[in-house]
Design a protein around this nucleic acid. Structure first.
Lengths: 128, 128, 128, 128
DNA sequence: GTGGTCTAGACCACA
DNA sequence: GTGGTCTAGACCACT
């Protein structure tokens, strides 16, 4: 059960380090490479690994915790939360709806059609 | 020739306002919804329209001018430059792909399936 | 509409500074001394006021934003969120239930009876 | 004379485990549910019971001993000290008051009314 | 001017 | 050993 993922930092993407870490954890969970109970690397070890400041790692873990994605116990470590990401159906609807709204607004503002978006999503989604 | 595009600002996308404007102009050119000679709204009117700070609009126009994409004529307005600019299909693809990737990652991290997303997009898209 | 609250920091309470700030904002909202749209002091000015590090204030504001309590716009400031703290009824039930559970567990472990708790709550609640 | 109390750990209260144990012992004494000579569970058994690290229990007992509240006899166990300790009614009031204050503030920040809280507490408390 | 990110490093609290 | 808090200060991005 003790899976591990390899983190990487892209210096030039313009995306803040802490957000890159959050994204990688989220993607790992989405892709089943991490699951409830798995331990994340310690703040310090990941910081050394990525050659960044421990505070930056801590910030990422912190935000993951606030979102309920991980569970951190002082003195023990940081773990993927076991709480069935317990969104009520209503909450789930809200999140899905907001996500799609944002996608549509952006797509529209760039001149992409609904079908273009869906085709692209299908292509990317099925490639996994 | 005097085409117009409708600008929109997405508060929650995390993309800075001025970049959203730039992107929308660029994509409109790439999608042939704007062409050389077309006039952009004035800084003031667009600012009022989008309910954002005029400085922000000015910054966007500024950068568009620096990149040679638009042409500001004092006292007359801002126009799409007639200099040949090529927003290649590749660039368009890149943006579409980036948008979809982001949508998928977020969706995945919340446990939404590809089909759920597409269904929701269809529903919202067709309602308009 | 531009109300203001006075922040104070208690050095000896053992409660982290940033949590004290969060609490004060929450209490101010609960007590109607702050409402949607009101601006919080800037990070820097509050830091000077309280004689603490700006990062500490920023951390508090950050967490308030994540919880949806405030709304921060780069370059503009931090404002009380206008989003009707939009918890679905289900979510609301869950929060209330968790809060009461925690209160009861603690009360029980300290030997307080249900009636003692309720009496104390009544006394404190009505004093406001 | 050999009374026993049931310890509980609240994962979400934010109060460190060892402090929760200390508080429960103190409050049991204040509430006359423990008295001089009563034996506490062994470090190991309590740790197993609460599913926490034995070091954490040991730390709690240690601090209780330092404060003169308990008395550890090598090879025999840990007992409530016979030294007169007064957890005055005032102290008890203070803790009750603190607990209620915390509950009220949180409730208020989520928009729950006093009556909602009390109703929920009654419902949950009487179900037990 | 505003907030956001990151660093380097200290000290504390917890298990 | 773990994570949490705070500082002092730099630099960037946005309005």
């Amino acid at each position: 059960m003790a899976r591990e993922i390899r983190f990487t930092i892209d210096n030039n993407s313009g995306i803040p380090y802490y957000k890159q870490i959050i994204l990688q954890v989220e993607m790992a969970i989405a892709g089943d490479r991490l699951a409830a109970g798995d331990q994340l690397p310690t703040v310090r070890s990941l910081a050394v690994d990525l050659q960044i400041n421990p505070n930056t790692v801590a910030k990422a873990y912190n935000q993951l915790e606030i979102r309920g994605i991980v569970n951190t116990q002082q003195g023990t470590g940081t773990f993927i939360s076991d709480r069935e990401i317990s969104f009520s159906e209503v909450e789930r609807e809200r999140i899905l709806s907001e996500l799609c709204r944002s996608t549509l607004v952006q797509a529209g503002s760039y001149g992409f059609s609904l079908e273009e978006i869906i085709a692209q999503l299908r292509e990317m989604g099925e490639r996994e």
